[in-house]
Amino acid sequence: MNVVLIVEDEILEREFLTMVIRDELHPEDMLLTCDSGIEAVKLAKQYRPNIIFMDLMIPEMDGLSTIEEIRAFLPRSNITILSAYSDFSYAQKAISLKVFEYLLKPIKPSALKEVLGKMLKAGISPPAPASADKSPVVESLEIRDERSTFIEESIKYIEEHFKEKLTLEMVATKVFVNAKYFSHVFKKEMGVAFTDYIIQMRIQYACRLLETTNYQAYRISSECGFSDPSYFNRVFCVKMNMTPQNYRKYSHVVNHHDSASKMI
Rank of each mutant, 00 (worst) to 15 (best):
Q200A: 07
P109I: 07
A40N: 12
A84W: 00
G37H: 01
F53H: 02
A179E: 13
M54Q: 10
V235Y: 01
Y250W: 14
R76D: 15
S227Q: 12
D23V: 05
K165I: 13
G117K: 04
N246G: 10
R48T: 11
V7A: 03
P126I: 11
L209G: 01
V7G: 00
N78E: 02
E101R: 14
V253P: 00
K118M: 07
M170D: 01
E68V: 03
V254Y: 07
F232S: 10
D35E: 13
I155D: 06
S110Y: 07
N255G: 05
A94W: 04
A130K: 13
F73L: 05
R14I: 03
I95G: 02
K108G: 05
D35C: 05
T80E: 09
E28Y: 10
E8Q: 06
R144A: 13
R22Q: 05
V175E: 01
F186W: 00
E139L: 13
Y205G: 06
V137D: 01
V253W: 03
F236P: 00
A260F: 07
L210V: 03
G123N: 11
T33S: 11
K180H: 12
D196L: 09
K188T: 01
K134C: 13
M61V: 08
N246D: 12
M201V: 09
I51V: 14
I21H: 01
E24H: 05
